[in-house]
Nucleic acid binder design. Structure first.
Lengths: 336, 336
DNA sequence: ATGAAAGCGCTAACAA
DNA sequence: TTGTTAGCGCTTTCAT
């Protein structure tokens, strides 16, 4: 029977051993004779013994589970990151607990608290668009609770961080548009305070400069909820329509698809006159219309890397105080 | 300080009470005087006491967490279902643990076992495409472990089930194509043995019949991994190209986008001559090209309903033996 | 090499 | 109404 609920006690009784001996044998302790080990292992195997992880957690103050906090699961980029995280968690026998903020900093805080008190061993998170104050996270980390940030990372906090080279991505996107002869390149982006927003904006500016184009603040539109609400995007698109632009660089998954959707309501001539490059990890960009050039983040890799750093930190004997910031390259996928 | 690790003992000591009194006060037991309760609650509040859920789980044999098993998170339909599940779990104070099978029945079994032994209180699952033998799930359920199935449900097993009206969805899709004057309607679908495959096929056949069209097995193509691998779809599309069809009904999220992608490599004339209707929960169908008609499942609702049934079963005093099968309507979203 | 016993934080039967 | 005590399943110190 695959799923009986035997305990260490049952094994001990059956084999006439003490629970401690069984426990040690199971954990392959050096103090136990080869013979006894074999006996215990064999019997455990036979009855299909499964250690109760709850009991173990209580005793060891470790749950072999890690929390993930993202704004939305239903997002190409995040779901791919989660896949990456899962792949290493699975390999290292960690359970993964996912929760969503829906870009609300309050939900974020509740989730953090929940995951922390549920004794996850650490957290992987991308900040919500709303989050300004992340000092409570710092407090947690000071208490020895490991948190690794990815994608949207807090500026000051000392921790491992895994991000895409957003500056490069922005630069290449805009460079691409400029090389195609566009002179009035707009920028549609997310929450002003997010790290990714600033970085991509920098890339945008650098590319403008590199191509002798002026930076015009009127061509940059922010969506504080990163396109979570289509209305934000509609508004931005309407405002941009006043500006007579001939290309646009878009700074996020939802924003990119949201922009395309918003353009469905505009005269076709307008749409066709605008060249589009945007961050997106959609696997189906090639069936989008109008056609766009995609800047893809190595989402799976980011998840993997972040999870590795976290688990490494969790399992480290001493407090970690040397933190890494890993920057992974983006890829531009041209389509025309 | 938001995140101290106080225990019930600390409160007891500070207030000169016993731990049991504190425990009872915290849980608002009738045996405790209003005064004492107030005292305890106030102090707990003050020091920001958080019960240790691990300890509680161990004692109560209940973890206030539920497992979700789906084939892929990065799938519009499933991520929306998960959102629905999460919304009720959150409201009822359950944690949610997600895992993916990637359509492998072996992964599925490992996940089930893992979630079961990790003491989740119950499971919400959609079967993997590969799964044939679900008898081990029956064993588990017999032992009192609640499982609610959604979307891809096992035939014989006695349990709560939540599904979309796949027959209706298939019927309406094909009805729609027929009304547009199409006579040779193909069908691209998933794993033969899945419930959803059979049900949608039935709807397809019914609509053919209703419109005086012959059923031709050569026009039906199965993808055993539901389009997880694009190669399956390419193959099916190549085979279909031999058949000279003028419309197609597609039976799944991945299959629908995969089909569109595959068609990118075919002559434009071909593509334009084929009318497409497909199951998809993508929120961006309106920017797909070619244009398609979408059959949408009430994913969020399904998740909600399934979670409600599960939690109800978990919290039920007596063994549940009356099981419901909830069938929710699909919606056809025309685009042309 | 093995066992006895304590304890992780909490709940609950039983006593007072 | 409150306290004492045992115990959930496991690990681990300290004896033996």
């Amino acid at each position: 029977m695959a799923f009986e609920n035997y305990t260490i006690k049952d094994i001990a009784k059956a084999l006439n051993l003490s629970t401690s001996t069984v426990s040690r044998a199971l954990r392959d302790s050096y103090e136990i004779s080869a013979e006894t080990k074999k006996l215990v292992l064999a019997y455990a195997e036979k009855i299909n013994y499964r250690a109760n992880p709850i009991a173990r957690s209580l005793k060891e103050r470790k749950s072999y589970s890690i929390g993930i906090i993202v704004s939305e699961i239903a997002n190409n980029f995040f779901s791919q990151v989660i896949d990456g995280i899962e792949s290493v968690a699975y390999a290292k026998n960690y359970q993964v607990v996912i929760s969503q903020t829906h870009e609300s900093s309050e939900r974020e805080r509740l989730n953090v608290e929940h995951l922390y008190s549920r004794s996850t061993d650490g957290l992987l998170m991308a900040l919500s668009a709303e989050t300004i104050d992340s000092s409570y996270l710092e407090e947690l980390m000071k208490k020895g609770f490991p948190i690794v940030f990815f994608d949207r990372v807090p500026g000051q906090i000392k921790s491992h961080k895994v991000i895409a080279d957003n500056r490069q991505g922005g630069f290449e996107a805009v460079q691409y548009l400029a090389k195609k002869g566009r002179r009035k390149i707009a920028h549609l982006t997310g929450a002003k305070k997010l790290s990714i927003t600033a970085e991509r904006l920098e890339g945008y500016k650098m590319a403008l400069l590199a191509n002798g184009l002026d930076f015009s603040p009127a061509l940059v539109k922010y969506c504080e909820y990163g396109g979570l609400h289509q209305a934000e995007i509609e508004k931005a698109v309407a405002e941009l329509a006043e500006e007579d632009y001939d290309a646009i660089f878009i700074s996020g998954d939802k924003l990119t698809t949201g922009y395309l959707q918003a353009m469905k309501d505009r005269p076709e001539a307008d749409v066709n006159s605008i060249l589009i490059a945007g961050f997106t990890n959609s696997k189906v960009v090639n069936i989008f219309s109008p056609t766009i050039t995609a800047i893809r983040q190595p989402a799976f890799e980011m998840g993997k890397k972040a999870a590795e750093l976290l688990i490494q930190q969790i399992e480290s004997k001493y407090a970690v105080d040397e933190f890494e910031t890993i920057v992974l390259p983006t890829t531009l996928i041209e389509r025309e």
